[in-house]
């Protein structure tokens, strides 16, 4: 069946329960379908070519109203699937010209998808962000001569700045410790780039933007640990989000399959591979080689400039 529509990919699932997709619609308000190949289900929707070919889609991505609604629609489908079973999300705006292309992907990546589904089974992604918190320390008692107010002011100001820098360093160290402790309780951990205040909507600097793949059995432990860490480190405020579908842990490795057909009788892309050996490739995934690995290491924020209480107006000048 060929239609002029394009196929938008939402998620790969082990299987999709009957009725799981009822009432759900996708990014073009379209009903959802399931393509099943060798025991893997790919949830897709048909979107009109006129609105989703390269030119049209590129133009629409610049339409923030559309983009925001579409992002939420994409997420809604994935979240619903993740609620009922093991699910791997596809990145937003993954499209094939038709179902055949989508099915070929499913076949070609089958073993890697199966291994990745295994890794996220009974697990959910939790996000933990740490922000700088706590009241600024009271200005230390500075032994300054009372008859020299200028010197006293400069000394106070320096002490204040030093205290703030120290507080920030301590909070940053605490954030590293928190991440390590939470990662130890998770199957996998990743770090997203720190969000700027403008993106996060919070004034306090963000110190950690972690994602953790946590077994359902260990969610309580994970939560208890987060509570304990939040209490222990008063210089940071922790914020939790979740459960998320395993967005941050859905990497399936390189496109070239590890297991090459030795006889070279057929490539994974050919359309006739209906009978596929159920190769459960135990793809190694010990190291977080995903795109996350590089992003977390270097915090790119600096401690805020202290504002002298004596000069509140000057600091706002800009």
């Amino acid at each position: 069946m060929t239609t002029p529509d394009l196929t938008w990919l939402y998620a790969v699932a082990r299987d999709v329960e009957d009725g799981a997709l009822d009432g759900l619609t996708g990014v073009a308000d379209e009903p959802l379908r399931t393509l099943t190949v060798t025991g893997l289900a790919l949830v897709v929707g048909s979107v009109p070519r006129s609105g989703f070919d390269e030119r049209a889609l590129q133009r629409r991505l610049a339409d923030l109203q559309w983009l925001e609604a579409a992002v939420r629609a994409h997420h809604r489908v994935i979240a619903e699937l993740a609620r009922t079973g093991r699910t791997l999300p596809l990145r937003f705006a993954t499209l094939y010209r038709d179902d055949r292309g989508a099915a070929a992907f499913l076949r070609g990546a089958g073993p890697r998808l199966r291994a990745a589904l295994e890794r996220v089974a009974d697990r959910a992604e939790w996000g933990v962000k740490a922000y700088l918190a706590g009241a600024a320390p009271a200005p230390a008692d500075i032994a300054a001569p009372a008859d020299r107010p200028g010197t006293a002011y400069l000394l106070r100001r320096r002490a204040q700045r030093d205290a703030l820098a120290q507080r920030f360093d301590e909070a940053m160290a605490a954030a590293r410790e928190i991440h390590a402790a939470l990662a130890a309780l998770a199957d996998r951990a990743a770090e997203h780039p720190l969000q700027s205040a403008e993106a996060s909507g919070r004034a306090e600097p963000m110190l950690l933007n972690g994602a953790y793949l946590v077994d359902r059995e260990r969610v309580a432990d994970f939560g208890a640990a987060a509570t304990e860490l939040g209490r222990r480190f008063s210089g940071v405020r922790l914020e939790l989000t979740g459960p998320w579908p395993p967005y941050s842990f859905a990497d399936i490795g390189p496109e070239v399959p590890e297991t090459v057909d030795p006889a070279g009788t057929g490539t994974a892309e050919t359309a006739e591979a209906d009978v596929e050996a159920d190769v459960e490739a135990e793809a190694g995934f010990g190291a977080d080689a995903g795109p996350d690995a590089a992003t977390g290491a270097a915090p790119r924020i600096k401690p805020p400039e202290p504002r002298s209480p004596e000069q509140p107006a000057a600091a706002e000048g800009g």
Binding site: L61, H74, L88, L90, R97, S200, G242, I252
Partner: peptide, 28 residues
Amino acid sequence: VQSANLADLLERVLDKGIVIAGDIRVNL
């Protein structure tokens, strides 16, 4: 995800998940 803010959502939906080329290439 009740407590999810927009930044959390966008950084996951637009940047994470299975990344494959597909047939339609766009720049985000």
